[in-house]
Amino acid sequence: MDKALKKYAPIFVIPTTAAFIIGFVIPFIEGLYLSFCRFTTVSNAKWVGFDNFKYALTDADFRQSFVFTVSFAVVSIILINVGGLGLALLLTRKLRGTNIFRTIFFMPNLIGGIVLGYIWQILINCILSNAGKPLLALNSTAGYWGLIILMCWQQIGYMMIIYIAGLQNVPDDILEAAAIDGASPVKTFFRVKLPMIMPSITICVFLTLTNSFKLFDQNLALTAGAPKHSTEMLALNIYNTFYARAGMQWKGYGQSKAVIFCILVIVISMIQLRATRSREVQA
């Protein structure tokens, strides 16, 4: 059996590897190359060295969008994970209608980001207008919290499902032992359940972290960066660098920002994975 598996391994591996190389590795390397070039289309690139990176790193808007993205990421990671875990705890208690609630909480995740963005834009503008406050296009505070509310609404359900799976994997005998030893529910949660679901936490934090950094659709639809780029996240800033001005140099600038962005996301998520992995325990 093992031998047969080994023999036919290439059949299973090669198509995926080929797709990965064609769909990811080659474009990635080409993208890296283009970040050192001036170009309009990929075929007419001209090498300019580090000029693009020099621009990207000195661009005030880019730095501002980095700050905005980080402050968004921190708050949304905490809220989404706490919310998701809270719901998961509620919905693993064998209450009536658990499945219906799980489905309902999961559903927002099935709607596309652009649609969600526009729906929430209408909702939030309605509230702001009734309250006599400036609308989203003129109100960066509302834009910031709007984005957070939107992302929580969309992602809590998804993270909840992962946490539920984690909680269901906590062995009953350990919980029973804790109960017999007289541990309170709070203590059971922090000392027994939480360490046991560390793998779920790793995955959920990773997903929310990368999602917050890469956020584009919702940002574009909800605020489009208004007012004056103050609610513009990194991905949208890169997009705007590409298309907001005519001239060949802008594509290169945008491309170099994209490369910086990519490295940034990889580094941050690596650190996070290492940090949370080290806390995982075996039952």
Binding site: A137, P227, N240
Partner: peptide, 20 residues
């Protein structure tokens, strides 16, 4: 007009002025 960015800047300022 020099760029889309210019138009957006004027547009945002007009919106802000209209509101206040």
């Amino acid at each position: 007009m020099p760029s889309e960015e210019w138009k957006n800047g004027v547009g945002e300022a007009l919106t802000a002025y209209a509101a206040d």
